[in-house]
Design a protein around this nucleic acid. Sequence first.
DNA 1: CGTATTTGACCCGCGC
DNA 2: GCGCGGGTCAAATACG
Length: 223
Amino acid sequence: MFSTASQTMLNQSLFEDQDLSSQLGFFPIHSNFSSFQLGCSQSLKNLAMVPPSLAVDTPANLSEYFALKQKEEIPYQSAGSQCFSSQRSTADYWAWEEMNYPMSIKRSGGENYLGVSAMKMKKIKTRRKVREPRFCFKTMSDIDVLDDGYKWRKYGQKVVKNTQHPRSYYRCTQDNCRVKKRVERLAEDPRMVITTYEGRHIHSPSHDEDDSQVSSQITNFFW
DNA sequence: CGTATTTGACCCGCGC
DNA sequence: GCGCGGGTCAAATACG
């Protein structure tokens, strides 16, 4: 069902580092992207992987998956148990999300460097604040801002160190909805777009289409 | 003219 | 304490 041209290209890209992916149970992605700087096993305790059967490979599928995610219709899996037990064949995993509790990790250099994401988790631990749930996608697309059914307003752009592509920051335009997302391109492969969502919408997508119909179609499609 | 984007300034947590 | 760097703010600008 996902045997599209983009899927093939995506997999080729993702499989570049077979060792690390099989070792960690998820794909090593752009080392300069803070949310993906989790190349150590400890961090997996705080991640939930997207089930392979629900892997999405195109912007359209991303939109569908995101819609489901927002409605909590897709159960989260604990990466800590899934990745290192029976599910060793994790080649289809390509996205992850943070679980909503702090982790105790120590910062280390090189490939195991933990970026902002992890550092903020540490802050949360000390401040006893709960971080908004986050999950992210790696998608092959010419379009930076993928249509996920929600309306976003850009509030910042930043050139992250050691990358040539700027990271863009968006906020949901809906009143009282504090969902944010970050969009950036992979340095190693500019064809890939990484979208990170933070928080959960308090409303349904503001699309012109018939949302309920779309939703039911998606549900039937997956389950 | 109202709304969205751009972009430099600013904030703040972290490591040294 | 200081500097770095990611994230956010907000004034200026663009756009319709």
